[in-house]
Design a protein around this nucleic acid. Structure first.
Lengths: 185, 185
DNA sequence: AGTGAACCCGAATTCCGGTTCCGAATATAG
DNA sequence: CTATATTCGGAACCGGAATTCGGGTTCACT
């Protein structure tokens, strides 16, 4: 793909970016229900142009989702720099959620789970998961997280928080509950 | 509505039930993406008949969701009978989630949050919430739940669990984490 | 057992949004 | 500057799914 990018005509590359930006913004805002026409309009282009760059709507979505994964992966790398194991974990957790909060499309794509030919994204997904796993492990070993906590649990927690992001900012409260537990023993 | 039911012709009432049952089953199974034709077929009726009983697809959905609320409200009433405050709470929590697990449509409608003209359902929703609030309060007062736990938190917790119901049965694990907390202090 | 209102049926229509297509416009090589 | 390959634009197309509509059917009352 990097090679392909280089061989793209100047205007084409510019437009491709415009499409990506417009799509990102609209998908983030309205999630699933955005029309190709709207994206084209926002990008100041014709629909035809979208299809020149992306096979179909699904592909465009995939590109957007992939982008966000790159973002959070970068974020994870930063978090890993933290000296304290707990700080690293908390930074990742909160950073991830904050980054994802305004992106309706991403949240829904995660929550919907089905995701047919989402195969494209797999590699980005893995990159994130790898780092995330290390950070979790470190926090467990340092005794800051329950001994049986693992990467899958991180996903459970974040999905849970994401489910409480619509409208009311209840997800922060929920995160507290998840960290501390609701039961008194 | 009760009066209207009485004045319905025998076959009409029967068909109405058939539609409701068929719709409930299909919506539960496939969530959002069910066609009116399918529902009609499953009910052994023509599409026209669906529209005789429900203004549009949305109205039908609303009726189904309302139904499930009635179910869980009944469930809550039962839970409240429990002598032990914690047992009552746990019964409600787990019972609610188990009851909701197989109902894709319901889960999505809760998670999607937007809910345009969902106003119809409000009363059913309130009925449930009232009882649920009492049960939570009792568990708090008995010292089984953190002191600041309230009805809104119940919703956060359940939404969280519901977000982890697609496919993998991870929601039970998530529920444990939510009850006990993931952090070690 | 007749009558009319209520009800049912499902083909036809409408609506909606993704995708295609090809002439016009534009960038780059020579 | 010209030629040629690329890219753009957006009206037209198309399929899928909701909704309508009017003629046929069934119930319930007398």
């Amino acid at each position: 793909m990097a090679a392909a990018e280089r061989s793209l005509r100047a205007d084409a590359r510019r437009n491709r970016e415009a499409v990506l930006d417009a799509a990102a913004e609209l998908f983030a805002q309205d999630g699933e229900n955005v029309q190709m026409d709207q994206i084209a309009a926002r990008a100041g282009l014709g629909v035809g142009t979208l299809y020149r760059h992306f096979a179909d709507k699904q592909a465009l979505r995939a590109a957007i989702i992939g982008r966000r994964f790159e973002t959070v992966t970068r974020l994870a790398r930063e978090a890993e720099e933290e000296d304290d194991a707990w700080t690293a974990f908390e930074t990742l957790l909160v950073g991830y959620l904050e980054s994802v909060e305004p992106d309706t499309a991403f949240r829904f794509s995660i929550l919907s789970a089905e995701e047919p030919t989402w195969a494209d994204i797999e590699s980005e997904k893995d990159a994130f998961r790898t780092i995330m796993t290390r950070i979790c492990r470190r926090a467990v070993e340092a005794g800051h997280l329950r001994a049986d906590f693992d990467a899958d649990d991180f996903i459970l927690i974040t999905r849970g928080a994401m489910a409480n992001m619509s409208g009311h900012g209840g997800w922060r409260r929920h995160l507290t509950l998840q960290l501390e537990g609701i039961r008194v023993v």
